[in-house]
């Protein structure tokens, strides 16, 4: 991080600091709705970072990150509703649960040389398998869902991850910033360089003595653990969980859009992607409402078209291009 920070020119530093300051101060002027949009921006930036570690750095396409999101969410919320274990402790149980699942997927995939599309399908299969499993798991409410009470003792206290929008706003902001710092640090570490080597040319990486399997497994470990933390946030923010929603392949897809649109394998890509995509979706909803159009699919149609346009015109993502336009030497990041 120090390294990257050192090499960023004054404009880059100024923009970074101003943006951060603006986000920290935003609640002074922003209303509830704007805060809820910003929470989603940070949430997707955070999850985007988690996924980008595996895909952007280690070069392994996962389309089943909903598995770790859902396991994290379900573990923490079930511990709270069933045993009264608060989320700040629950998160430390949610992480190993999701990480174990990640390790299993990674081990099965990479031990047996399943790569590319095949690996992506393996991750989908595990997520879908688990989704249907949870649909029939009575203890967490099966397909009828798991609900967090808002009226029980202490449910609205911050130490139980309950309360007003400000709490979630700052938690999601801290998560997003911390993830950015972590990713920047990892990128500069020897592990980061090993990941890039493995991504670019696995055989050559192996020839210079890098343990490919281990490098990928570490990426999966960090990625699934981070996603689990996002899942805990998801569970306590929305306060209801349905297997058909949290484990859905739609979840896996939505969390990979920000890093792909922003720029795979870059440090600020997931953030830029989330800043572009989330308000776009929200703005469309608002526009449709104000025009009095009640067309349930129209927003997603536009979303799909935007995706196709962006990937056709800027396949490397928006961030590298934006960084060049703004004259930041961060474009190499």
């Amino acid at each position: 991080m120090t390294n990257i920070w050192y090499h960023t020119n004054w404009r880059g530093k100024a923009i970074c600091l101003l943006l951060l300051l603006a986000f920290v101060a935003a609640p002074i002027v922003a209303d509830r709705y704007l805060l809820s949009v910003l929470i989603l921006v940070f949430y997707f930036a955070y999850l985007g970072h988690a996924w980008n570690l595996l895909m952007g750095f280690a070069g392994q396409l996962s389309l089943g990150h909903a598995l770790y999101l859902g396991l994290g969410a379900y573990t923490a919320t079930a511990l709270w509703t069933l045993f009264g274990v608060g989320p700040w402790i629950g998160v430390f149980i949610a992480i190993p649960v999701a990480a174990a699942a990640g390790m299993l997927v990674g081990w099965l995939g990479w031990r047996f040389a399943i790569e590319g599309v095949y690996f992506a399908l393996l991750t989908i299969a595990f997520a879908e398998f688990t989704r249907i499993g949870f649909d029939h798991l009575g203890i967490t409410g099966a397909s009828a869902g798991l609900f967090l009470s808002v009226s029980s003792e202490g449910a609205d206290k911050w130490w139980n991850l309950g309360g007003g929008p400000l709490l979630y706003y700052y938690i999601s902001l801290i998560l997003a910033v911390a993830a950015t710092v972590l990713v920047a640090g990892l990128r500069q570490s020897s592990l980061g360089y090993r990941w890039l080597a493995v991504r670019e040319d696995p055989e050559a990486a192996q020839a210079v003595g890098i343990n490919i399997f281990r490098a990928r497994m570490i990426a999966m470990l960090i990625s699934s653990s981070m996603t689990a933390v996002g899942g805990v946030f998801y569970g306590f923010y929305y306060r209801n969980l349905f297997p058909s929603q949290v484990f859905d392949i739609g979840r896996s897809i939505e969390l990979i859009l920000a890093p792909i649109i922003g720029g795979l394998g870059t440090i600020f890509g997931p953030v830029v992607g989330a800043i572009i995509l989330t308000p776009l979706g929200e703005g469309l909803t608002g526009l449709m409402q104000s025009l009095g159009i009640n067309a349930p699919g129209a927003k997603l149609i536009f979303y799909g078209i935007m995706l196709m346009i962006i990937i056709s015109l800027r396949p490397d993502g928006v961030w590298p291009w934006l960084a060049r336009q703004m004259g930041l030497n961060g474009s190499r990041k």
Binding site: A120, L264, P296, L300, I301, G304, L307, I311, P315
Partner: peptide
């Protein structure tokens, strides 16, 4: 056609975009 031979995730995003348009068009 322009996506032939490009990275898998790029093709994937293109077709996910297409799929989203189709399924919501049908819904609409």
């Amino acid at each position: 056609s322009p996506f032939i031979g490009r990275a898998e995730h790029e093709q994937f995003i293109l077709l996910v975009g297409l799929a989203t348009v189709i399924v919501n068009g049908v819904l609409l």
